[in-house]
């Protein structure tokens, strides 16, 4: 898809200081754990206490990120709300399933059931902001956020002035354990400081929420433009090479979804061969999760907006490019869902 849209404002909660911090001065948050956990803000300024008491973690993160994004964008009403999530509220889902077993399918609490549905965050945003427009949540594993983005771009093409587009994902102890049984994570602790020392089977898990107000027209406040996106399901190397070449040939910087997992390293090796350009990774900042692509988009837009790459965040990169105007993001989710996205500098 080659329709252009503009990022008017954005917000992210992640394992880094992305919510309150300034990307150019915030320190790189390091951990020795293979499970990266979000730095959560104080939710009380954003969510009334009577609503907050009922919400579990990912709902608080999603709603707060969306509200901060709207505030950063100077937009009062959200318009269409389009989100993506791979797992939704895992905490509520786990609680609900455990109670089904514990209470033999009787006397089940309504709250975890309601909140375990994927579109809870969208509903909460609409309720709090009195939004009555289009409201949709995409749940397509590693394509969840990307489908929300494509849908938003189509809505803008059809005449919507702006959309609120985002993602939210959480990791729980139980789900981390389940995924460790199928070898998704490294067996020895590497944390996010030694992830790229050696490519070995498995990676580190992550979580986060990122929201964007997208507009059809450029404004003086636009932070960056999304000028191309392509989604590829289990592509052949030839097909992937062609798409990377098509979208990334004239990019100045590559943001790579490399997560140190040797099982799928061949795709990122191919990326380096097809686009031999300055490249930075991002999974050491946010970990691996279904909607990690939204963090990559946030990062690309933040770097383009500030015009600087914080060296402390990328200690593994020997030489960072001084100037860049066009960024290509390549990411895939455990070798299945592959996304190539182009983000460009605007206003300056």
């Amino acid at each position: 898809m080659k329709v252009k849209c503009y990022i008017q404002g954005m917000a992210a909660i992640s394992p880094q200081h992305t919510f309150d911090g300034d990307i150019t001065t915030a320190p790189f948050v390091q951990t020795e754990s293979n499970r990266l956990v979000c730095i959560e803000p104080d939710y009380k300024p954003f969510i009334p206490g009577n609503s907050l008491r009922r919400m579990t973690r990912v709902l608080r993160m999603g709603l707060t990120t969306a509200l901060k994004c709207l505030a950063n964008s100077g937009v009062a009403t959200p318009g269409p709300i389009v989100t993506g999530t791979g797992k939704g509220s895992l905490q509520d889902t786990e609680k609900f399933i455990k109670e089904i077993e514990q209470y033999k399918e009787t006397a089940l609490n309504p709250t975890p059931f309601i909140q375990s549905t994927y579109n809870s965050v969208n509903g909460l945003i609409a309720l709090q902001q009195n939004g009555t427009d289009y409201n949709n949540t995409f749940v397509h594993r590693g394509f969840s956020f990307e489908n929300a983005l494509v849908d938003s771009m189509m809505l803008l093409q059809e005449g919507a002035s702006h959309t609120l587009t985002g993602s939210f994902e959480e990791m729980t102890e139980e789900h981390f354990y389940i995924k460790s049984r199928i070898g998704q994570w490294r067996t020895a602790p590497v944390g996010n400081t030694r992830l790229f020392e050696q490519h070995l089977p498995g990676t580190i898990s992550g979580e986060g929420s990122a929201f964007f107000v997208l507009t059809a027209a450029q404004t003086p406040a636009s932070k960056a433009a999304i000028s191309g996106i392509k989604l590829l399901y289990k592509p052949s190397e030839e097909r992937l090479s062609a798409v990377l070449q098509e979208l990334g040939a004239d990019a100045d910087l590559v943001i790579s979804g490399d997560n140190g997992d040797s099982n799928y390293a061949r795709y990122y090796e191919l990326l380096g061969e097809v686009l031999p350009k300055p490249a930075i990774p991002f999974k050491h900042l946010c970990g691996e999760y279904d909607t990690a692509g939204s963090f990559a988009l946030w990062l690309a837009a933040a770097l383009l907006d500030t015009g600087k790459i914080p060296g402390e965040w990328f200690p593994m990169v020997k030489e960072l490019p001084g100037e860049f105007r066009k960024v290509v993001i390549y990411n895939h989710f455990f070798g299945e869902q592959h996304t190539v996205m182009v983000v460009e500098k605007v206003n300056g």
Partner: peptide, 8 residues
């Protein structure tokens, strides 16, 4: 919703 929780 709280009333349902109290029933439970």
């Amino acid at each position: 919703i709280d009333s349902l929780e109290l029933m439970v």
